[in-house]
Design a protein around this nucleic acid. Structure first.
Lengths: 150, 150
DNA sequence: GTCCTTCTTTTGAATTCTTCAAATCACGAC
DNA sequence: GTCGTGATTTGAAGAATTCAAAAGAAGGAC
């Protein structure tokens, strides 16, 4: 595993370097798409005194400074990932909330620029694929009519 | 306004026809992208005794049967819309949660089919554009660095 | 038209994720 | 090393949504 320059990342973002923050960054590196709870659990392994509240604070700071990104899959708790340079989207399991990365479906700019922006200042376009993950595919009974929507 | 065949819609979906359900359908027709609370407020105008809980129940039933669709914009409460035949996506205001429809960015199937589905049974692809709506554009101070993501 | 079964609705409370607030603590500029 | 600002802790609050049990109504059968 590539060593993470947590110090440089935090300082570069104008944040103070603290153990909780370094630990959250490392947790995110080790746990892609982790929930706040999962991050807290992982952080607690090395820093047992870090509170869940602190994890929320840190995640908030990291996303605010662009170091991390939050994914909010509908009715499931928010997930977080390190903001990596590459462009990718997400597969979300409607049953268990599992998330997988999808490489960007190449340079189809149309997906980014709505024909009519209704006066919105569009900052970001997000593509999310909903479905059942491998595990839930077998576990779940009803195979709902897959209504594909674009 | 085109009259809504609420009776036919419900029966066609295998649901009993009740006043609360007809009222919710009509509320959705009149209030695109309404929250459960907004639907409840609208329904209460004609049926003051319908509880918020019932609205949640009905919305759940309607989405389950494919009559309605729920949009879950991150940290804002869920919104609902009648499931219309056309394909469109949504502009969401990151500040106030306002939602606008965007016509489908034409037939770019690539947006629909991830290269690697990681074993997922993909049922739906959703595109969401995040930004500031016309009102909030002026109201909000900081114009954050528009990091476009595809 | 009436009855009966099943599905809906109501009422009231609980759950979960997330945020707020005040006091203590520590990073890091000087 | 000192100091000021920013970070963390603790404890509790908040909001959207869901659960559960009892009462009520839809609609098919007769």
């Amino acid at each position: 595993m590539t060593q993470l320059d947590t110090h440089g990342m935090l300082r570069g973002a104008g944040l103070r370097v603290t153990e909780p923050r370094r630990a959250v960054l490392e947790a995110l590196a080790g746990l892609p798409h982790a929930s706040a709870d999962a991050v807290h659990a992982r952080v607690s392994q090395t820093l047992p005194d870090v509170s869940l509240q602190t994890v929320y604070n840190v995640l908030h700071d990291l996303t605010g400074r662009g170091l991390a990104r939050s994914i909010e899959p509908g009715d499931h708790p928010a997930r977080y990932e390190l903001r990596v340079g590459d462009n990718h989207h997400h597969l979300v399991c409607t049953h268990c909330g599992a998330i997988a990365d999808v490489d960007c479906v190449v340079g189809h700019a149309p997906c980014l620029t709505p024909d009519d922006d209704h006066g919105f200042a569009v900052a970001e376009a997000e593509v999310m694929f909903w479905g059942l993950c491998g595990d839930c595919k077998h576990a779940v009974a009803v195979p709902s009519p897959a209504s594909v929507h674009l």
